[in-house]
């Protein structure tokens, strides 16, 4: 049973599309189960075509699941009661070209039954929040991609939602734009909102997310706190660069190293784990060689991601 602090609950959700003339069945999302908790920033990660957008569209009531269930804020997906407390920004949307950002946000306010002075105040607040006050009366067709994205986020916040769902909010933005979106997500979290966003830019996810889920070919491959996922099965490689190493010393290091690269006088040694660092240092000292550098490799979400993509096998799941 979902507990009260669960905002999004997905149970065994699947979507099978029929494509082409013969209606070939393609499974976009396969028995996906996960939950998003109140107040967290939840990253929904996976390579292109993994089924992230399909899952989000199912949650938003844009496509119908083939099987399985999901609920948002305790209401089944598509229910007007859940939509009222929801904000959504689709991936690279193009809004009504001929509306000004002010008219545009007013229109979305009307869809929530907001009118009059309170809506005007809300629109101005949002334009300020996303830093678009200067473009209040500019038509959207004159906007850059970054500006559209910011107005899009404002649109998703018009009803002061409890849950904000952003599909690839950073895609197509320059570094400055990405930082702005990141800051906005942080601010949403600070104001107590739950944010769920999909991305294939892992650096952003690592910076922002409390928890992440990783899906591949429609299946969940990992889900948990970012730090746990990074630790799990991550390699803690250490890279050492040594000068003037004797042939005996080199032979001994070869036994400890997972990789040895010779560059003239210089030797680069990669140790598979930190445990063998002391032993390697002993060898270097005994051989009277010179240690140039010792660099521990920090594992990142990207390592995990690449491992999963290359491995293709669903990893053991960590549910935290």
């Amino acid at each position: 049973m979902p507990s009260s602090d669960v905002v999004v609950q997905i149970d065994q959700l699947s979507k099978v599309f029929r494509v082409g003339f013969w209606g070939k069945r393609v499974t976009a999302v396969d028995q996906l189960s996960l939950s998003v908790r109140q107040g967290e920033v939840f990253g929904f990660l996976g390579p292109n075509g993994a089924g992230k957008t399909t899952t989000i569209k199912m949650l938003m009531g844009l496509i119908y699941p083939t099987s399985g269930r999901a609920s948002i804020l305790g209401h089944p997906i598509g229910d007007p009661a859940s939509k009222a407390k929801l904000g959504f920004l689709p991936e690279s949307p193009y809004f009504y070209d001929y509306l000004t950002s002010h008219e545009f946000l007013n229109f979305y306010g009307h869809l929530f039954g907001l009118w009059g002075a309170s809506l005007d105040t809300r629109v101005d607040e949002l334009l300020e929040l996303v830093g678009m006050t200067h473009a209040r009366d500019l038509q959207l067709r004159k906007f850059s991609k970054g500006m559209l994205q910011r107005v899009g986020i404002a649109q998703a916040l018009i009803n002061d939602p409890e849950l904000v769902v952003l599909d690839e909010p950073m895609s197509g933005l320059d570094p400055v734009g990405r930082k702005e979106v990141r800051d906005l997500i942080f601010r949403l979290k600070e104001s107590g909102k739950t944010v769920m966003f999909s991305s294939h830019i892992l650096h952003d996810a690592e910076l922002l997310c409390d928890r992440v889920a990783m899906i591949m070919k429609g299946k969940l491959v990992a889900c948990g706190q970012v730090s746990d996922l990074i630790e799990r099965g991550a390699t803690h490689e250490v890279e050492m660069v040594v000068d003037r190493l004797s042939p005996e010393g080199l032979a001994q290091l070869r036994l400890l190293a997972s990789k040895v690269v010779l560059q003239g006088e210089r030797v680069m040694v990669v140790l598979a784990s930190q445990q063998s660092v002391d032993e390697a240092l002993d060898v270097i000292r005994a051989a009277k060689a010179k240690l140039v550098s010792l660099t521990p490799h920090k594992a990142s979400l990207e390592d995990l991601f690449i491992r999963e993509v290359r491995g293709g096998q669903p990893a053991a799941e960590v549910h935290v």
Binding site: M60, G61, L62, Y94, Y108, L111, Q155, A156
Partner: peptide, 14 residues
């Protein structure tokens, strides 16, 4: 095509 409908149908609009 422009995905504007996504933002409308995801709001409380039938």
């Amino acid at each position: 095509e422009k995905k504007t409908i996504y933002t409308i149908v995801s709001k409380p609009v039938a």
